[in-house]
Simulated assay, not measured.
Amino acid sequence: MNGHSHEHLNLWRHLDAAADAAATLAALVRFRVTDREPIFVLKIRQQYQLVDLLHTFAYNARRAIEIANDYNPGIRQHADFIKLTGFEETHVELGIGEDARPLAEKSLWWVLNRIVHSRELQVYKKEEAEVGHRGRIIMYQTPVVFAVRSDFDGSDVQHYAKFERLLEAFLALTEKFEETLAAAGFEVRLYK
């Protein structure tokens, strides 16, 4: 095992899986397509992928935090400190004729656990209109927020969070993960 403990290799495995899911999530939530393009029909498939990737990301991110916390105490506490909202951001506007959704003013750790134990997970897209060629209205849809209801919640409760903010919050732990892996003898820069 090259001097690396099984648990450190497990940490690396979960970090790698979380990073893979995060990279694909980032690409899908930044993908913007018009309703006039043939590939627009793929948006529903992408929505299913987003839900699957959120589960994969949340499970592996949570496991990585749990394992790293055994070697570098305080990482889990730090994950519970990092909030997914900030700078007076309390709602997200989704588009034309839509009510603003209240963002869950919760921590990374809290949201990861809600996703892992989710009973329902929905993707919401922001809709934007632009005037295109010859004055035609073009509609764009971009996934920006998800809603989660878990085993811990009542049947009418949903918690909303932005995809990108979830990923940014996890990436804020990069230095702590690198310290933990370096202490175990790994020479690694996670995302550089």
Rank of each mutant, 00 (worst) to 15 (best):
M1N: 09
H4R: 01
H4G: 05
S5T: 11
E7R: 04
H8A: 07
H8G: 02
L9N: 10
W12V: 14
R13D: 00
L15W: 00
D16S: 14
A17Q: 11
A17N: 11
A18E: 07
D20W: 11
D20R: 13
A22E: 15
V29I: 13
V29W: 12
F31E: 06
R32F: 06
T34V: 09
T34G: 14
E37S: 12
L42S: 13
Q49S: 15
Q49P: 03
L50C: 09
V51Q: 15
D52W: 08
L54A: 07
A58C: 13
Y59R: 09
N60S: 10
R63N: 14
A64Y: 06
E66C: 03
A68G: 15
A68K: 07
I75M: 03
I75Q: 07
D80R: 14
F81L: 10
H91K: 09
H91T: 11
V92F: 01
G95M: 05
G97F: 02
E98D: 12
D99R: 13
P102T: 00
L103A: 05
A104T: 06
E105Q: 11
K106N: 01
W109L: 06
N113Y: 04
R119L: 13
L121C: 06
Q122V: 05
Y124W: 12
Y124A: 08
Y124M: 06
K126N: 14
K126T: 15
K126I: 12
A129R: 15
E130R: 15
V131Y: 10
V131T: 15
G132Q: 08
I137P: 02
I137A: 10
I138D: 12
M139R: 13
Q141N: 06
V145G: 01
V145D: 02
R149Y: 02
S150D: 07
S150L: 01
D151N: 10
G154N: 11
S155E: 15
S155A: 14
Y160L: 02
K162H: 07
F163G: 00
R165K: 12
L173K: 02
T174M: 01
E175W: 04
K176L: 08
E178S: 06
L181P: 06
G185S: 11
K192C: 01
K192W: 07
